[in-house]
Design a binder for these strands. Structure first.
Lengths: 234, 234
DNA sequence: AATTTCACCGATAGTACTATCGGTGAAATT
DNA sequence: AATTTCACCGATAGTACTATCGGTGAAATT
């Protein structure tokens, strides 16, 4: 049926390489990193286990490539989403749109989100670095979006707060995206509304404190008890 | 040095059992579920690998016990935190206190949080059920707290929204707790402030819509485009 | 056309782990 | 005091996997 253009050797090699990557990604999504083995990946790609090493030094190298590809796909997804956003709505819904974009971006590649969420706190994971970077990218993304909405931080404390807000909103975004993918929250727009509302509250805090003179007693006056000792980070 | 009360056989057995559990928990926290093996756990507990099976049918059973213990410890931690909260501050800071309690509760057992976050999205994890339950418990916890603050949902849509808000706040709580544990956010109280602010925004959304007659056009008036179809719960 | 390259193969040695089995000695029971 | 129980032990068979090695045939090069 299919036309059979005689593949050159290098083309054929590249094809099986892509098959390996695709197979690994599928297994990674379905069974987690623990489910990955050269046996399974090679078999799923239709080659002998030993041939795995023709393409990759070992599993770690494959995972590295996977992380790079994943990262690139994510960034592309984000770029494209932003481009779309710039085209369509004016700024009538800017704030809300700001939160729908990452939501959609995340939902477009759920396997990447899942993999990232898993690897993030797994000390044994080779993808941990990738996960940390991705998380940071998301956080920066959010922080930039918040800045674009006019909430800039002009001192140490506000910068930290902005980071915390971005971090929190990011986590909430992931949580709602997962909930959406699991069928609990069918309407992404509603999720975006929730995120918008969440951020509105937090930003009001920023804005409110930003109006005060910077030198003031650092915390809200309505607080009675002493502050907890900082971490302890033993 | 230590007094040597001659341990009865069952006492000795129970002691090694506890040693096994303790060792497993440590390995689980340090190396993740992938690092767990009967070899390592037994060795860490100071007994022969084969003796592992005197205490547990297999690794899965140990993990199950671990999950139960962890769950119990978490619930106890929450109960105690709530009790404390009821004692000390009046209601001057009720809202903020509502968010500091789970934060502290989570930070008190960081290994449980980490394990839970990892297992949550790992299809291969035996602890997945535990993680899902724990997450649901946290979510309910938050939902109950929000309800206690007077934000009750009296229709389908608001109930869903309340769930989403609780879910989002929960995720943000975990994120900030992790950030605190990682040293990025030294002041837990500040984190509680952020969470309070986040929830205030979201709750305003609930309250605002709750004030309207139920039959009305369901969304905020400042939105131009048509509202997406309600759930669809496919 | 002769030669070289190389993607892929099967076989296999080595590693890490699980789970069972028979043995042992001290605690518990009689 | 004699017997039984049982927590723990070392040895070991079985499983799953990694990574290497020599071989093969078709593509690429000469």
């Amino acid at each position: 049926m299919t036309s059979t253009p005689p593949l050159s050797r290098s083309e054929a090699k590249d094809l099986t390489r892509r098959k390996l990557i695709r197979a690994a990604l599928a297994i990674l999504d379905e069974e987690g990193e623990a489910g990955l083995s050269t046996v399974k990946v090679a078999k799923a790609a239709g080659i002998a286990q030993s041939s795995f090493y023709v393409h990759f030094k070992d599993m770690g190298e494959l995972l590295l490539v996977l992380a790079e590809e994943g990262g690139e796909r994510l960034r592309a997804s984000m770029r494209e989403a932003r481009r779309k956003a710039r085209e369509s709505p004016g700024d009538l819904d800017l704030h809300r749109e700001t939160f729908r974009i990452p939501l959609e971006s995340v939902c477009r590649h759920p396997e990447l989100l899942r993999i990232q969420l898993r690897a993030r706190h797994d000390p044994a994971s080779s993808l941990r670095e990738f996960a940390t970077e991705t998380a940071a990218a998301y956080r920066d993304h959010h922080a930039a979006d918040l800045a674009a909405l006019g909430y800039t931080a002009d001192n140490e404390r506000d910068r930290r707060r902005l980071e915390m807000i971005a971090d929190g909103i990011n986590a909430a975004t992931n949580a709602l995206a997962m909930g959406h993918l699991e069928g609990r929250y069918p309407d992404l727009d509603e999720a975006a509304d929730i995120l918008t509302a969440l951020s509105r509250g937090a930003l009001r805090l920023l804005r409110a404190t930003a109006n005060k003179p910077v030198g003031e007693p650092p915390e809200r006056p309505d607080r009675a008890e002493p502050v907890n000792e900082p971490p302890g980070q033993s």
